[in-house]
C-alpha cells in the first residue's frame, strides 16, 4: 500500500476510535462539570451497554430495539448508582466520591464477569456490505455508522444545552452551582440527570464499537481510561475539548500503532496522559478554549 493511502487508512481508523473516545470523554466531563465527581465507572457503562445489546440481539431482538433497550437500561443503572452510591455520600470529600466510583467500577466488572463470563462476544455490523473506498483507504461501513451516530449524539447534546430551558438550567449548574441553587435548580436532580445521561452515552459508545472490537466483560477498563485521557487532553472541564481530545487520541493511537508498533496502541494513551499531566495539566485544548459546554 502506498504511504499516503496507508496514512489515510490509519486516519479513518483513528477517527473511528476517536469518536468512541469522544463520547466516553464527553460523559466524563459532563458529569465532572455538573457534580465535581470524576466517575471512574464510566468505562463499565460502555461494557455493559455492549454486552446487554449482544445478549438481546442474540435473544432475537432487532438491532434497533436491542440498542434502545440497552441504552435505556444502562441509563437507568447510571441514575440508580447516583441515588444509591453518590447521593447517599453527599457531603463526603471529592477523594471519597472518586473512591466510591472505583468501587462501583470493580463491582460492575465483577457483575459482568458473573453474567457473561470471560468469553468474547461480538455484534454484527449495523449494515451489510463491503468496505467503501475513499481515496486509497478502505472504510468499514461500521466506521461510517460510528461517525454518523456520534455526530447525531453530539448535535443532540448541543441542541439540548443550547436550545432547551432544561439544558440551560443544567448549564447554569455547571457555570455556578450556588447561583443555580438560588434560582431553585436542585443540584441533586441535576446530578441524577448527569449520571443517567452518562450511562446512556457510555452504553451508546459501547454498542457503536461492539461490531468492530472484542466485546468482553472487562473491555470497559481500557475504554474508560482512554476516555479519561481524552478528557484530560481537553482540560477535563471543557466539553468541546473532550470531543477534540478524543479524536486526537484516536488518531495518535492509530498512527503510533500503524507506523511504529501495534504494541503502542494502548501504551500511547498512558504516555499522552503522563505528558499532559506533567507539561500542561490544564489540558492542551482546555488551555486554548476556556469556554465550558
Amino acid at each position: 500500500m502506498h504511504i499516503a493511502d496507508q496514512l489515510l487508512q490509519l486516519l479513518f481508523t483513528g477517527l473511528t476510535l476517536g469518536s468512541i473516545y469522544s463520547l466516553i470523554a464527553l460523559a466524563l466531563v459532563t458529569t465532572f462539570n455538573i457534580t465535581g465527581i470524576l466517575n471512574l465507572a464510566q468505562g463499565e457503562f460502555v461494557a455493559l451497554g455492549a454486552l446487554l445489546a449482544v445478549s438481546m440481539y442474540a435473544a432475537g431482538m432487532p438491532m434497533a430495539a436491542a440498542f434502545t433497550v440497552s441504552v435505556l437500561l444502562v441509563a437507568m443503572l447510571g441514575g440508580f448508582l447516583e441515588r444509591f452510591a453518590i447521593h447517599t455520600a453527599r457531603g463526603a470529600s471529592g477523594l471519597t466520591l472518586i473512591i466510591i466510583t472505583i468501587g462501583l467500577s470493580i463491582s460492575l466488572r465483577g457483575l459482568a464477569l458473573l453474567i457473561w463470563g470471560t468469553e468474547t462476544y461480538s455484534l454484527p455490523a449495523f449494515s451489510k456490505g463491503g468496505p467503501l473506498f475513499i481515496g486509497g483507504a478502505a472504510v468499514n461501513p461500521q466506521s461510517l455508522w460510528i461517525f454518523g451516530l456520534t455526530a447525531i449524539t453530539l448535535a443532540g447534546l448541543y441542541a439540548f444545552f443550547e436550545l432547551t430551558y432544561w439544558g440551560k438550567a443544567v448549564k447554569a449548574s455547571v457555570i455556578n452551582r450556588a447561583a443555580a441553587r438560588l434560582v431553585g435548580i436542585n443540584p441533586h436532580t441535576v446530578s441524577f440527570l448527569a449520571f443517567t445521561a452518562s450511562g446512556a452515552l457510555g452504553a451508546a459508545a459501547g454498542i457503536f464499537i461492539a461490531p468492530i472490537t472484542m466485546t468482553t466483560y472487562d473491555m470497559g477498563f481500557m475504554l474508560g481510561l482512554k476516555g479519561f485521557v481524552a478528557a484530560v487532553i481537553g482540560g477535563l472541564s471543557n466539553v468541546g475539548g473532550a470531543v477534540l481530545g478524543g479524536i486526537l487520541l484516536g488518531i495518535l493511537e492509530s498512527y503510533s500503532a500503524g507506523l511504529i508498533s501495534s504494541g503502542l496502541k494502548d501504551a500511547i494513551a498512558i504516555i499522552i496522559l503522563l505528558a499532559v499531566l506533567l507539561i500542561r495539566p490544564e489540558g492542551i485544548i482546555g488551555a486554548i478554549r476556556e469556554r465550558k459546554i
Binding site: 440551560k168 438550567a169 448549564k171 457555570i175 455556578n176 447561583a179 443555580a180 438560588l182
Partner: peptide
Amino acid sequence: EIFHSLSVWDNLLL
C-alpha cells in the same frame, strides 16, 4: 452570581 456564559435573556428566564 449571574451566569456569565449565558445570555441576559436566559439569565432572566432561569
